[in-house]
Amino acid sequence: MKKNVLLTGGTGFVGKELTKVLINSGYTVSILSRSKRENTASIFYYTWDIQKQTIEKDAVLNADYIIHLAGANIAEKPWTNKRKEEIINSRQQSAQLIYSVLKKNGKKLDAFISASAVGIYGAVNGEEICTEDMPLANDFLGLTCQKWEAAADQFEKLGIRTAKVRTGLVLGKNDGFLNKLSPIFKWRLGSALGSGKQYMPWIHVEDLCALYLEAVKNPNVVGPYNAAINDNTTNAVFSKTLAKVYGYKIWLPNVPGFLIKIVLGEMAKIVLTGRRVSSDKVEQLGFQFKHTDLEKTLRNCL
């Protein structure tokens, strides 16, 4: 019997790529979706409603592993108080729904693996390199990620191996972070944002999926792991490199930070701040990033 991996957020950018990787690696995949879909030979679809706290429990009971990717997009809408609540609840309540099914039915998983983000270190700028054991931030991004991870930590109480993947900016073809940025640079209108000195820890979606696969297969993967290249890329370097890939040099001045704040409000912190992060812990597993050169990675994605 093939092992089954249940994905939440499986119809999103990372989820679609991860589904392919898991199937090619010999697993069957189940996906929780808000609407009913037709099953395929390797993918089984189940429905759930996070707000109503309803779920087809067989999705959970048939799973050997669960990878929890679900969560409202933090950059999709302005950060009103209502939106902030939605961002947090979409992560906490979805995990709680799965946890309640496991606990009620005495189901034991081989592992529960949750997405998280490097935003847990805070929306600030600085030279300090963030490791997984450093103090965490108490701003909105930091607290959101902490609550996200706390929702995952409760699975440990059921004796389930639990891992948390703190992800940087995900690069990939036709989607992800580049999806909104590329058209601007393609029309030669790209420039750095704010000071341009803010760090941009990034990872190619192929490496991110490989890391999730490692977390499934390797019983030593426990706790938090930074999932980002440690190459000290700043916004200015990223912008300059992306323009180079499109065949030109940036000619426009940096977009002033105050203008970005006027347009995005508090959400401007996403693009105007960034931390350096360490990839040492994940590399100590023996994991090797395939995509480590920013220019080559961008060319691969575009």
Score class of each variant (00 low, 15 high):
R91Q: 07
Y99Q: 05
N105R: 01
T54V: 12
W79Y: 08
Q93E: 13
I67R: 10
T54N: 04
N81R: 11
K77D: 07
K103P: 00
L97N: 10
R83P: 00
N73F: 08
N105A: 11
I88K: 07
G71T: 08
E56K: 04
G106S: 10
A63K: 02
N73S: 15
I88D: 00
N81W: 00
W79E: 04
N81S: 13
D58I: 07
Q93P: 00
D58G: 06
L102W: 01
K103L: 05
Q92T: 14
D58L: 13
D58H: 10
A72N: 06
I66Q: 01
T54E: 13
A59Q: 09
I74Q: 03
P78G: 02
A63H: 01
A70I: 11
A59E: 06
Q96P: 00
V101N: 08
Q96S: 12
I66F: 00
F112C: 03
Y99G: 06
A63R: 01
Q92F: 10
S100W: 00
N62S: 13
N73G: 13
N62T: 10
Y99F: 15
L102D: 04
Q93A: 12
I98Q: 04
N89A: 14
W79T: 05
A72I: 00
P78Y: 04
Y99I: 02
R91S: 09
R83S: 01
K57S: 15
K57I: 11
L69E: 09
R91T: 08
Y65T: 03
H68K: 09
G71V: 04
Q93W: 02
K84V: 01
S90G: 07
R83G: 00
E76D: 14
K77S: 10
A70D: 05
N81K: 15
N62E: 13
A59N: 07
T54K: 11
A95L: 07
Q96F: 12
G106E: 10
I74W: 02
K57C: 03
N105F: 08
N105W: 02
H68L: 10
I87W: 09
A63I: 07
R83H: 11
K108P: 01
L109G: 09
A95G: 04
K57N: 10
K104A: 15
I66L: 05
L97C: 08
F112K: 03
I87G: 03
V101W: 08
K107I: 07
D64S: 11
K82F: 05
N105H: 14
N62D: 12
G106C: 11
A59S: 14
E85H: 09
I87P: 01
N73P: 09
N81P: 00
A75V: 14
I66E: 02
P78R: 15
N62A: 08
N89F: 03
I66P: 01
Y65Q: 03
K107Q: 08
K107A: 05
A70R: 06
N89Q: 14
A70G: 08
I87V: 12
K82M: 04
K77E: 13
S90M: 10
I87S: 06
V60Y: 12
A63E: 04
S90K: 06
A111H: 07
I67P: 03
K57W: 02
E85V: 01
A59T: 09
D64P: 02
S94C: 13
I67F: 08
A70Q: 10
E56W: 07
K84L: 05
E85S: 13
D64L: 03
I66G: 02
A59K: 08
K82Q: 14
A111Q: 05
K103S: 12
E85A: 11
V101E: 12
A59G: 13
K82A: 15
K104F: 06
Q92K: 14
